[in-house]
């Protein structure tokens, strides 16, 4: 469900804005959804992004942007009525289900999302993705963390550094 709205504006009222990814793909979304980004919100409040102009996002590619917008579109209604007060338990459960599903993705996409969420200052997305990475770290040794997150094998030099750093907090390895 929830295919991103294609902006046909059948309620006639929603204002649309156009975002342009680094690889020149144009995305048309409701201003309310794009405004989850603190960065975009200012531009949109100033009246930008409408008509044929579009807002260029030189740091975000189309694959990442489509993923980001999927998040924004899903979360925009809840954000519009100030989050919790009117939300029913069902709504919240549905958002939670969506979030869990949403971060169930390849690591490279996850990292691109973190960077995009920071660039665009989308608070909810930042913490959602950061939490996902943190969950991958919990309870693991430094070496296990490196393997899980796809670091290359340490060089002897890096290994020596790791050993030295482990001594700094010896109590964490008992």
């Amino acid at each position: 469900m929830a295919a991103p709205e294609s902006g046909d504006g059948n309620n006639g009222a929603a204002r649309m804005v156009t975002l342009i990814s680094s690889d020149n793909t144009r995305f048309e979304v409701e201003a309310a959804a794009a405004s989850l980004s603190q960065t975009l919100q200012l531009t949109i409040l100033d009246g930008g992004g409408g008509g044929g102009d579009g807002i260029p996002l030189p740091n975000v590619d189309s694959a990442t942007l489509s993923k980001v917008l999927e998040y924004c579109i899903k979360h925009a209604p809840a954000a519009a009525n100030g989050g919790a007060p009117n939300a029913t338990a069902v709504d919240r459960a549905e958002l939670e289900r969506f979030d869990n599903e949403f971060v169930n993705i390849d690591q490279s996409v996850l990292y691109s999302l973190i960077m995009a969420a920071h660039n665009l200052e989308i608070e909810g997305l930042q913490s959602l993705v950061a939490k996902k990475v943190a969950d991958m770290i919990k309870g693991k040794s430094p070496m296990e963390i490196r393997r899980t997150l796809g670091f290359p094998d340490p060089t002897p030099e890096e290994q020596a550094e790791m050993n030295a750093h482990m001594l700094e907090y010896g109590w964490a390895y008992e």
Partner: peptide, 25 residues
């Protein structure tokens, strides 16, 4: 930040802010 999602951004591409947000979780 300029990396494309499809082209294999690694964990080492994360900047300080992004990592800080992970550590604070």
């Amino acid at each position: 930040a300029v990396g494309a999602a499809g082209s294999g951004l690694t964990v080492q591409a994360l900047n300080d802010d992004a990592l800080r947000s992970v550590f604070s979780c």
